[in-house]
Amino acid sequence: MPNLYEQLGGDAAVDQAVEIFYRKVLTDDRISRFFDDVDMDTQIAKQKAFLTMAFGGPNHYSGLDMRQGHKHLVERGLTDEHVDAVIELLGESLQELNVPAELIAQVAAIAEGARKDVLNR
């Protein structure tokens, strides 16, 4: 039985998804302001790391990385509703790539697992 990452299509699927996902993030009024002043190439590399993790792929990110990486955003008002928006946009991106609903649910559950660290709670 292939694991989730393999079922989704591995790193090629991450590359495809990040292009769709990041467009949604940049144009979503709820969260786009958090991405105004970041370098796009750096940000896309980070989004790929996040998607690889959410896809159940190989990663070495710790909860501590997630905490440190979002601390300054929490200070700027990052809350649950923004995390909700990110998970929603991730789901929409995967729908556009015709990923089956049960796999999207698994991805959303992994992303959900990072919520406490992202919000530094």
């Binding site: 790193d11 790929k48 690889t52």
Partner: peptide
């Protein structure tokens, strides 16, 4: 470095001589 999985690109380097394998240039 950070992710050690070829995703975050923190460890990007440049070869001054010699060919890096194409698998290390993915992405």
């Amino acid at each position: 470095y950070a992710c050690k999985t070829g995703v975050c690109q923190s460890c990007m380097m440049k070869a001054a001589a010699g060919e890096p394998p194409s698998s290390s240039q993915r992405g």
